Simulated assay, not measured.
Amino acid sequence: MKQFILSFIALVFFVFESIFAQLFAGDTFGDDKILVPHFMMIFIFFLTMYGSRKMGMLYGAILGLTYDVVYTEILGIYMFLLPFLAYLISKCMKILQNNILIACLTAFVFTAVLELVIFQMNTILSFADMPFGEFAKRRLLPTLLLNLAFIIVSCYPLKRIFEKLDLQGDAE
């Protein structure tokens, strides 16, 4: 039952991210700003922090592959990057205090890392020819602000859900 609930929540985040991107695409917030929701990734980050590393990495790989197939031109980048970031988050949370503020800050930092690595991979593979300064102004900052707002809104409900599901005992 826990796996069904967790899979359903992951699906909701995956679909919600797509719907949000479709609704707010274009010049809704300004013609030169690019907003990229990373709601599914934030779900994986909180799953890793409050659930288990094993579940975070597993869902990261599965949802990353799904994301690659549906949305990206580079197959495998999210499939490998999300489990890797989940692993790094689990290691960071062993060092840092595990309170809600630190968890939000960690999710924010790893969202920035995700966005920067994706940009760098797109630049290396010549899918993007935007200079870093323009990328930071047009995409990175608006994306980080959007995802920070989502982190603030969703951190406590996600924490409660993962604690209630008690994934620590099942996965490790």
Score class of each variant (00 low, 15 high):
residue 57 M to G: 05
residue 28 T to F: 13
residue 58 L to P: 08
residue 108 F to E: 00
residue 9 I to H: 03
residue 105 L to D: 00
residue 156 Y to V: 06
residue 40 M to N: 11
residue 65 L to Y: 06
residue 3 Q to H: 13
residue 67 Y to M: 14
residue 16 F to R: 11
residue 125 L to I: 11
residue 156 Y to K: 14
residue 29 F to A: 12
residue 83 P to D: 09
residue 123 T to H: 08
residue 147 N to W: 03
residue 143 T to E: 00
residue 121 M to E: 10
residue 108 F to Q: 09
residue 172 E to F: 09
residue 35 L to D: 09
residue 11 L to H: 02
residue 145 L to M: 15
residue 78 Y to F: 14
residue 171 A to W: 14
residue 10 A to M: 02
residue 101 L to F: 15
residue 53 R to G: 14
residue 7 S to D: 02
residue 104 C to H: 01
residue 67 Y to S: 15
residue 93 M to F: 02
residue 80 F to R: 05
residue 86 A to L: 04
residue 66 T to D: 05
residue 100 I to G: 13
residue 32 D to P: 03
residue 60 G to W: 03
residue 32 D to V: 09
residue 86 A to D: 12
residue 20 F to K: 07
residue 56 G to F: 10
residue 5 I to F: 06
residue 95 I to E: 13
residue 149 A to R: 01
residue 78 Y to G: 09
residue 90 S to N: 12
residue 152 I to W: 03
residue 91 K to E: 13
residue 64 G to S: 07
residue 123 T to D: 14
residue 23 L to H: 10
residue 129 D to F: 07
residue 166 D to P: 03
residue 160 R to F: 14
residue 79 M to P: 04
residue 125 L to T: 14
residue 8 F to K: 07
residue 145 L to N: 05
residue 45 F to H: 01
residue 21 A to D: 09
residue 120 Q to C: 09
residue 56 G to L: 06
residue 89 I to H: 11
residue 34 I to D: 10
residue 10 A to F: 03
residue 25 A to M: 07
residue 36 V to Y: 07
residue 59 Y to N: 07
residue 25 A to Q: 09
residue 147 N to M: 07
residue 130 M to V: 12
residue 146 L to H: 01
residue 49 M to A: 06
residue 116 L to H: 00
residue 117 V to P: 00
residue 80 F to P: 01
residue 44 I to T: 07
residue 81 L to S: 08
residue 26 G to D: 05
residue 53 R to W: 08
residue 171 A to Y: 09
residue 24 F to Y: 14
residue 105 L to R: 01
residue 80 F to D: 11
residue 115 E to N: 10
residue 18 S to C: 06
residue 122 N to W: 06
residue 152 I to F: 06
residue 160 R to V: 12
residue 170 D to V: 14
residue 114 L to Y: 04
residue 65 L to W: 06
residue 169 G to V: 09
residue 168 Q to M: 08
residue 8 F to W: 13
residue 66 T to S: 15
residue 119 F to H: 03
residue 42 I to N: 01
residue 124 I to A: 10
residue 5 I to Y: 15
residue 160 R to Y: 08
residue 153 V to Y: 04
residue 168 Q to A: 13
residue 48 T to R: 01
residue 121 M to N: 01
residue 139 R to V: 14
residue 169 G to K: 06
residue 65 L to S: 03
